[in-house]
Amino acid sequence: MESARHVFRVLFLLLVVVVIFSVGRTFLVPKSYGAYGPYRFDNVAEQAAIRPPQHGGSASCGACHAERLKAVAAGAHRRVGCEVCHAPLARHVQDGARIAAMPVDRSFTLCARCHRRIEGRPAAFPQIVLAQHQGGVEGTACIDCHAPHSPKL
């Protein structure tokens, strides 16, 4: 037994680690962990609190841009919300006051997100093959020819 003293020391050390771990764990595991599953339930409310809504919906845009909204509502993009192409409302307006100009993405990639030809899209949906459309339009702005708020072509 004398020659196995180091083994007992290791086992004792392991025991100490296990005890420290078990005690430490009670401090480390968040209180609401496991309330409804293996996650910290309080996090849901916390995230909701620190992330105020960024989008306001098209109606909120209409409060100032009624004419624009009317034009969009009459065209082919009537089901596309303003903030789908523009930035979220919170980047433009906060507490009812304009804080910055609305960013406008004029790149073709924005339009291509919906209108690039993909077999997965319904056949009747307007789609283009970028390399073939008007002899290749990749890199040019679609909105040079198409009106984004009421596209007709």
Binding site: E2, S3, A4, R5, H6, V7, R9, V10, L13
Partner: peptide, 19 residues
């Protein structure tokens, strides 16, 4: 690192080997 025991007797080394 040695946990304070300096036992390198053949018996202790045999125990190490088995461990």
């Amino acid at each position: 690192l040695a946990l304070g025991t300096y036992d390198t007797s053949p018996e202790a080394l045999e125990i190490d080997h088995r461990a």
